[in-house]
Write a protein that binds this DNA or RNA. Structure first.
Length: 458
RNA sequence: GGCGCCAUAGCCAAGCGGUAAGGCAGAGGUCUGCAAAAUCUCCAUCACCAGUUCGAUUCUGGUUGGCGCCUCCA
């Protein structure tokens, strides 16, 4: 499998440290608000990576943190009139609900920054001993000038940053690129004791502490959005490698951003949709499918029109699935279907092996649906619907789609459907059409077949 | 100012040296109640210019247009 590594900016053959085990760390959310569509992308991308690695036979150790202490947390907690801890609990819960609806497998470890203060202090101490950190009036800073490899991930030079700095240089810092490891206590803010006095950890150090605690000083894959490359990931490398003297991460993977009208979707620009907002209009599976339609490193423009397109495409897959489920009982071993199935898997894997090309893999899935349908139409006796179904299920499982149970209908819909069957018996077409439109309006589709009427979720 | 990325049909999107996957929309066929659903078929020479090559959408240089990072940000 080839993976694009931000460190080398090239496609590299993926070789895990342990032959059959892969360790992955993905930067999680700061839990001060609901996540938006952009935040959902790394969730979906790295969950799909995880699923695919499992499909390939690897054991995956997946860690995602929660940043539950920083300026935004404190401000928001004050605004809502609750403690930082209560705020974190509230939005972690919301996050996990969204993740579940996106069919994201819960991480093996979900560490919180505030529960790892001890580990954080240990790293800062070690950095201080090695001369990579210095103390100022408002905290402890990392000395980027002292770390020779600073900039190796983002390709930035400290000198360039000086000249291009858009923000006033902090007087306390030796260089503009230096960053806080520990922030001294301010009145009214949560704080913890440390060798440098009471205070709280800087943002970057948390991820170093938590990733190394759960995955070791060197691990396989670290993921996140492209915006994290600098400074966050650059700083993580400096701290971690500075403290341990060992390589921190072998493969850095970064997903592209979601745009709205060709502009980055972000909280600061205010042009974002939260996941709960999307969930009002679409099942979150549609969002997952939509994102899988584009390579994870590309930017994607988000719109409800595009979501509708994705919804239609997803429906096509569900239609095939439902149909094959109905036929599966009649499945007979078929060499032809076996061949088609194998060919599909090959194409699917080729694409996934090529830096997680989910769009290409999806293409293979759609082609499979068409070809298998063709076989089932032309020679249902010989075609193996059971095998078609299991292939579809296996591959869609890797992508984390087609997980909804479309056969369970609400009572309300059932009633309408029954009425419609009667109307059709009476040849009351006007009433039948009216009922059909009602059902469609409620998010379901109706299909008339030789055996009768089929109603399913849209 | 520094550093990157991108430009493929009405829309979305793979491919990245040998003559364009897939989806949505659209058109036509089958089926049907004149319908719907389902299903099948059809629908592009890859922003522009100049090079390299037997051959370029794919490589190089340039032009134009768009986006991102350099500040919290997925």
């Amino acid at each position: 499998m080839k993976i694009h590594n931000t460190l080398s900016n090239t496609l590299e053959e993926f070789k895990p440290i342990n032959e059959d085990k892969v360790s992955i760390y993905v930067c999680g959310p700061t839990v001060y608000s609901y996540i938006h569509v952009g935040n959902a992308r790394p969730l979906i991308v790295f969950d799909t990576l995880r699923r695919y690695l499992k499909y390939k036979g690897y054991d995956v150790d997946f860690v995602q943190n929660y940043t539950d202490i920083d300026d935004k947390m404190i401000n928001r907690a004050n605004q809502e009139g609750i403690t930082v801890n209560e705020l974190a609990a509230k939005y972690i819960q919301a996050y996990e609900k969204d993740a579940k609806e996106l069919n994201v497998i819960p991480a093996d470890s979900k560490p919180r920054a505030t529960e790892h203060i001890g580990e954080i202090i240990k790293i800062i101490k070690s950095l201080e001993e090695k001369g990579y950190a210095y103390k100022t009036d408002d905290g402890v800073y990392f000395n980027t000038m002292a770390y020779e490899n600073y900039g190796k991930l983002s390709g930035r030079k400290i000198e360039d940053m000086k000249s291009g700095a858009r923000v006033a240089v902090d007087e306390n810092k030796k260089a503009p690129s230096d960053f806080a490891l520990w922030k001294s206590e301010k009145p009214g803010e949560p704080s913890w004791g440390s060798p440098w006095g009471k205070g709280r950890p800087g943002w970057h150090i948390e991820c170093s502490a938590m990733s190394m605690k759960y995955l070791g000083e060197t691990f396989d894959i670290h993921g996140g959005g492209t915006d994290l490359i600098f400074p966050h990931h650059e700083n993580e490398i400096a701290q971690s490698e500075g403290a341990t003297g060992k390589p921190f991460v072998n493969y850095w993977m970064h997903n592209g951003h979601i745009n709205i009208n060709n502009q980055k979707m972000s909280k600061s620009l205010g042009n974002f949709f939260t996941i709960p907002e999307i969930a009002e209009k679409f099942d979150l599976e549609v969002l997952r499918f939509f994102m899988l339609g584009v390579h994870y490193r590309s930017q994607v423009n988000f719109s409800f029109e595009l979501m509708e397109q994705a919804n239609q495409a997803l429906n096509r897959l569900y239609t095939a699935k439902l149909r094959w489920e109905g036929l599966a009982g009649e499945g007979k071993p078929s060499g032809e279907m076996e061949q088609l199935s194998q060919k599909t898997k090959n194409t699917f894997e080729e694409n996934m092996d090529s830096d997680l090309n989910t769009a290409g893999a999806l293409g293979a899935l759609f082609e499979f649906v068409r070809s298998a349908n063709f076989m089932l139409d032309n020679n249902p006796e010989a075609a193996d619907a059971k095998l078609a179904l299991s292939t579809l299920n296996e591959l869609s499982g890797v992508l984390g789609i087609l997980y909804r149970d479309m056969t369970v209908l609400p009572e309300e819909i059932k009633e309408l459907a029954e009425k419609r069957v009667q109307a059709r018996k009476d040849k009351n077409w006007a009433l039948s059409d009216e009922l059909r439109d009602k059902i469609i309006k409620m998010g379901y589709t109706v299909e008339d077949t030789a055996e009768g009427q089929k109603v399913k979720k849209k």
